[in-house]
Design a protein around this nucleic acid. Sequence first.
DNA 1: TAAAATTTTTAGACAAGTCTAAAAATATTT
DNA 2: AAATATTTTTAGACTTGTCTAAAAATTTTA
Lengths: 220, 220
Amino acid sequence: MKFNLSQAEENYLKAIYSIGIDTGKSVNTNQIALKMKTKASSVTDMVKKLSDKGLVEHKKYKGALVTSKGESIAVSTLRSHRLWECFLVDTLEFNWDEVHDIAEQLEHIKSDSLVDRLDKFLNFPSYDPHGDPIPDKNGVIEHHKNVMLSSVDPEASCIVIGVKDSSSSFLKFLDNAGICLGKKIKVLTVEDFDQSMQLEIESKVITVSHQISKNLYVKK
Amino acid sequence: MKFNLSQAEENYLKAIYSIGIDTGKSVNTNQIALKMKTKASSVTDMVKKLSDKGLVEHKKYKGALVTSKGESIAVSTLRSHRLWECFLVDTLEFNWDEVHDIAEQLEHIKSDSLVDRLDKFLNFPSYDPHGDPIPDKNGVIEHHKNVMLSSVDPEASCIVIGVKDSSSSFLKFLDNAGICLGKKIKVLTVEDFDQSMQLEIESKVITVSHQISKNLYVKK
DNA sequence: TAAAATTTTTAGACAAGTCTAAAAATATTT
DNA sequence: AAATATTTTTAGACTTGTCTAAAAATTTTA
């Protein structure tokens, strides 16, 4: 069957897929509504529609999960989104905090070969500007190991490999703090009271809230 | 006032603008319906909507014309479309017959700076792959002189500078006939009966119908 | 210039996607 | 386990853009 989905359908699939990946469980109507910034009743309608098309599995009152067909569409939308982000940053020289909303539109362009040609032009990148892995042509995607800066022990060092939140405000904060992908961070102390962290970055010391540290992916 | 138009609205504006440029007269409902591949009643509805927004001037039963606000939106959509076509052909190496439909989607991406950055990346091209002039950042656009191959006299030579029809089938025909932008064509004879032309192109002689010759822009 | 043909508009309907308000089901608390 | 709270679904409405069919206006023809 040939799927020609609306942007709305693709966005819902992406949301259900990514919440499912994050939580590993069936995805609730309210979780989807929150992510899609819409009302639960709208979600119910759309989930029913996607379910009728065989793209999600839904049990009334029990949440939804993407089927394998749904997953492959969601992954291909993610691939498109992330490749466009690479293009916007690497080729058009946008800053990493400017590209999310534009890529959100570009990801829905329908063409058999556009994304693959873009992939080739960009020399088959593995990660987007926010450190998210880019699925290959066949939908194979490497998943983040989900190690957050907030879980790093005092005295330990790590390298920033990604951001969980791609909002402009968060990314601008990181720019100002001198934090970007690949940067080495040493955790000096963690405050018991609010889990704020003292960090050493290139011999400068800064303090960040838990809100910040739990949105940064790092590796040892 | 800030205009945030739907893709449908932008497409109608583009259609009304370009038919208006071609004919120099008020644009009829049926002409728009033909171009938009829709019904006259749908056109009436949309024209009313655009008129309410001050983007077209409409007198009942007498056709429509874009206002200056409408024109500037139409021109900026054209600019976007043509720059994306350049990108698709020059950067992603699509053939010129593959890009129209994709650019038709890309032209509607909403971003303050995307098109200008694309323009810069492409080194401010003046013409798209079909020879159509690209409006500059301020909406200034050079118009074709509308000299068609069909109006060239026998024994005269000319250079192909554009195509009026950007359909894949026409462009594929041109590829097969060895006709591309910049190619020199000598008109040998014009048939009285059906206005078909004998052409000499790089010492090869071919015959083309009036349908073909009236869709090729040329210069002396 | 009256009749016929064509064009345009109106009226009413439909699909997609959203919303609010209320009902139904499930989960939590006591 | 009953009462309460929360979540989810249903019902009905609205918007955008489309359509068909019929009415109104305009243009063409005789």
